[in-house]
Structure formats: C-alpha cells, structure tokens
Simulated scan of single mutants.
Amino acid sequence: MTDLGLPEGILACLFDLDGVVTKTAVVHAAAWKEMFDAFLREREGPHFRPFDAAAEYDEYVDGRPRADGVRTFLAARGIELPEGGPDDPPDAATVHGLGNRKNALLLEKIRTGGVEAYDGTLRYLEAVRAQGLRTAIVSSSANCRDVLRAIDAEHLFDVRVDGVVAAERGLPGKPRPDTFLAAARDLGVRAEQAAVFEDALAGMDAGRSGGFGYVVGVDRVGQTDALYAHGADIVVRDLADLGGEA
C-alpha cells in the first residue's frame, strides 16, 4: 500500500468533506464571519471586535457541528445565549438561530459561487477504491449529500456519516471521535484499520482520541505545526502528495 502512502493494515479511509474533498472551508469561514460580525457589532457596539476568520475559525468553529461552533466561540468571548431549537428563525438571538443564519449565508454563497472539488483528492479516492479499500465521508455538515451530488462524487463513498446521520443517531460531533467510529463500524472495520483524512484541528483531535490507525492532516491554510500538535501522523498540502497517481 506504499503507493497510497498508507501503512500496512489499513482497510478503510474516512474523509472529511470541507477542505479535504471540496474547496468549501473558505466559504464556511466567510459565512461564519459575516454572521458573527453582524451579531457582535450589534451586541458590542463601540467595543466591537470582529470575528477572526483564520485564528478563531480554526480554534473554535472549524470541523464542529454548527451549534457546537456557535457555543464554543461565544464561550470564548464570554457570551451566553439561550439554546433555542433547530427550527429557530435565522434572526433569533439563540444558539440555533445564529447557526441557522450562518447556514443560510453559506447556502447562498454556494448557490452563487458553486462548489469545487480538489482534483488531487478525487484522484486519490479513485486510487484507494481501485485497491479495494472502503471509503466513508464523515462531515459535520447537514448539507453533505447535496454538496457531494453537486460535484458528482457521491458514488466514491460506501458510507456517509454527516450532520443529518449524526443527529438521527445521537452522535456527538468532532472533536469527539464518535462520527468517525460510527463510519468505521458501518464499513465493518476496527478503528486501527482505518485512516482519517482531515483539515480541521477538531478532526485531528477526533482521529487521535479514536485510536485510528493513521491520521492524515491536510494543510490548506498553513497550519502544519498545529495539525501535528493535534494528532496528525503526517501532514500534506494535497492528497496527491501521498501517492495513488495512475
């Protein structure tokens, strides 16, 4: 399996979506910033401090389920809001209201700008499957299936554990390893037989705490040291760097 850049004994590959398969991480960051900045500007007035779409996005939001991202960032700023519920309108001053506002902004940005895939990842997926390894997409996004269909990549995954599936099964999101562990079980492999591919620090934490056989950090934004610190076994700029080219 050396041509895939994976150790012996790996039988399955578990891929994050945003930032690993698709070029949507930057779109997510922009949607979070637009939502949080509007909220903070109204709440903090002259003391307004904008959301940092690099450092604060990486630390508190990236890779987490939407509501968890809202809670984690607001806690870091010393702000508490009512939870509300998943059906809260986007203008509600609740955790779920802010999350729904972010999602509305994201969908609008995707609608107007489209979705692009990383070609290196798609080629790597094809190579992985050609060698008989099983594959899963593991994403906190509730829009995962629609995004995969938009890039015609749904057929590249045997299993999907996304925000919708996690909610149905009551699985906590990253940095907890539960969604990755569920995907491994669905594929019929043990954690130590699966490799995790992630670009988020929360995803690295999940890979490390879940006891997975190999954790690949994908560095799209210059955070190689942080990915290693959070548990990566190897960090690459693109999955094409691992091998698997025809």
Results as ranks from 00 to 15, higher is better:
L81W: 08
K102N: 03
T72M: 06
R129K: 13
V115D: 05
D119A: 14
A67R: 09
T72Y: 00
T72I: 03
A130L: 09
G69C: 02
G78Y: 09
A92M: 05
L133Q: 11
T121P: 13
T135I: 12
A104K: 12
D91P: 02
A153N: 14
L81H: 06
G84R: 01
P86A: 13
A153C: 14
E108M: 10
E126A: 15
D146T: 15
I151G: 09
D68F: 07
A92I: 03
R64G: 10
I79N: 03
N143L: 13
L133I: 09
R101F: 01
S140N: 11
G63I: 04
T121A: 14
A75N: 10
G63P: 11
A67M: 05
A104H: 05
G132M: 11
T112F: 00
G84D: 04
D87S: 13
A136E: 07
I110A: 00
G63M: 05
G97K: 01
L74S: 08
D152N: 13
A92C: 03
D91E: 15
A136Y: 11
K102T: 06
L81P: 06
K109C: 00
N103Q: 12
P86S: 08
L148Y: 08
S139D: 11
V95P: 00
D146Y: 01
P90N: 07
V115P: 02
L107I: 01
T94P: 07
R123K: 14
R149K: 14
L133C: 08
E83I: 04
A117N: 02
G114Y: 05
D146N: 12
Q131W: 09
N143E: 15
E126T: 15
Y118Q: 10
E80Y: 02
P86Q: 06
G132N: 10
A130R: 15
A93P: 10
E154T: 14
I110H: 00
A117P: 13
T112P: 00
G78V: 06
D91L: 03
N103D: 09
G69P: 11
I151V: 15
V138I: 09
S141A: 15
A76K: 01
A150E: 13
R134S: 15
R145D: 14
L106S: 01
G78N: 06
S141L: 09
K109Q: 09
V138M: 12
R149E: 15
V128E: 08
L125V: 10
T72V: 08
D68T: 11
P90A: 13
E108R: 15
V95K: 00
T94V: 01
R71E: 07
C144H: 08
L98A: 06
D62Q: 14
V115L: 04
R123G: 11
I79W: 04
D146F: 05
N143W: 00
A142N: 12
P86K: 05
A67P: 12
L105T: 12
Y124W: 09
K109V: 06
I151H: 08
G78H: 10
E80W: 04
